[in-house]
Design a protein around this nucleic acid. Sequence first.
RNA 1: CGGGGCGUGGCGCAGUCCGGCUAGCGCGCCUGCUUUGGGAGCAGGAGGUCGCAGGUUCGAAUCCUGUCGCCCCGACCA
Length: 578
Amino acid sequence: MRWTEFFIPTAKEAPADAFVASHRLMIRAGLIRQVVAGAYTYLPMGYRVLRKIEAIVREEMNRAGAIELHMPAMHPIEWWEQTGRVEAMGDVLVRLGGRGDDWRSRTVLGPTHEEVITEIARAYLNSYKQLPVNFYQIQTKFRGEARPKSGVLRTREFLMKDAYSFHSVKEGPGGLDETYQKMYDAYCAIFSRAGLPYVAVEADSGPIGGDASHEFMVRTDAGEDYLVETDDGSYAANLERAEVLAISNEGDGRNESLKEVHTPGLSTIDDVSAFLKCKPAKMIKTIIYEANGEALVALVRGDHQVNEAKLSRVAKVGRVTPADPAMIRKVTGADVGFAGPVGLKARIIVDQAVSVMHDGVTGANKTDYHLTGVNPGRDFAVGEVADIRIAVEGDRARNGRPLQFRKCIEVGHVFKLGTKYSVAMEATYLDANGKAQPFIMGCYGIGLNRIMAAAIEAFHDGKGIQWPMSIAPFQVVICALDVREAEVMSTASRLHDELSSAGVDVILDDRDARPGVKFNDAELLGFPIRVTIGKRGLAEGIVEVQERRGGEMRKISPSEVKNALRNLVHHLDNSEPI
RNA sequence: CGGGGCGUGGCGCAGUCCGGCUAGCGCGCCUGCUUUGGGAGCAGGAGGUCGCAGGUUCGAAUCCUGUCGCCCCGACCA
């Protein structure tokens, strides 16, 4: 490809409203252009990157035995009603609108495709003999995100690889677990080949769905999630899932006696701790939840937060929701804000950090009163003790190593769905006994645009992008200086043609521009290898080869440069064996 | 949805508080000449319903009302 025949609108300045590195660089490098909030055009250079990512994903999915199909973005809303997700998705589900019985009013744009693929399974998969099957597609998704942000990291329209597997058994040959593992391994291969420094972490599988879920994360401050990990990599989890080491009991057994104090109108941790001049960590936060119609009380330290996912798992209830004020009054006999465990008649789950407290402060179950000198075990029963809180700075992992918190972006997610969608949509097959059974399902997603942005977040410097070889828009850029010198241009053109024939993605910067312009653009665009051909070098009998990520500039004779480059490209490309 | 900010040629901005000549500047773009190893110089030139609608006024980018859009923080996130 010749630069002058391509389309590369680079800019010296980034728009003032772009803040994160990948967003700024993608615009400056002419990879994308915003159309509306949360939707971008991928300009030719940016689209090359996306296509390369797509190719890696497709190869690995095929290798893992998944079969590609393509589903529409337009779905009948009826299917979403069947699975209850019109409600669950809320505004995230994009609806076409329309009047009355107009077809538009019955059509939504798919944010994901469980419903559509489950209908396929219902229609075509009739026998256990046809299972397992793993379908995938690379397709545009629509989500009515409340707030798109950070360039292409969070958008309303994006490219996703989504796969859905169908099984008659969970374990053993052909089971969900087997395919789940295959997908997990395929994802590792995909992110490795894309050159991304990723981490696979256990994720919370949510109140509904299966028993396992993993997220693939890339560390970047532009991300929205948190990775909780030890410095030596021995433990990593997402914030929702992160487990903490039990805190040891430092009490000396000489505890204060229980005392009731008047705290008029003070119902928050901050207010009470300020009033009583005690640290929030000395307070016992008493949160009343509702689970299956019953009250469920969670106790955590005043400076901690309840992790509702952990709580519902520990309590073995489907889902916990904060109790309404009426239930709180009924359980505590006091206004909201004065709940405490002493004398409380309800099921109480005690966070481990609370179980080792002494002389704590808590609500008195009496409006406008708190208790001091509260000691677990003495003043209230400590029956069910567990880790039910969100990990915080200073916590340690179960293996004793300090936990670190890093911002990250999710680029992939594998999920055991179970029978949620097959049951809801009555999608069944006949088992060996001729009995109808709902499919056991798994689903597996990758955000392609996010891979692109995450790669830039991970690899850039003050001058621009530093693409991994495998997803670079071009692997090699030839900067032909002195384009009016016949020898320069003939050498550059010959090298370009030879590299192209040898299967190297090469772009020849044949613009009649000053060297500085070419060098700066080459660095901004982030091509892994730059070859500089000028009359000065040719007079010495050399051309120059420079890697974008650093290293020595090498002088190589024009006759040897083709092979040298071919080797270097392969050497730098982690997407294929060297 | 709550809080904050911003809409002026393709991009970055000034002008708005305090209304007043043909709305400026830099980058980019076009033409010519010179220049060519780290974002060239000179000369000439094209390009703007000042987001949109209504109002006030002799006169509106500027004041008032409404509205739309975009960005940031928060809430939300299958």
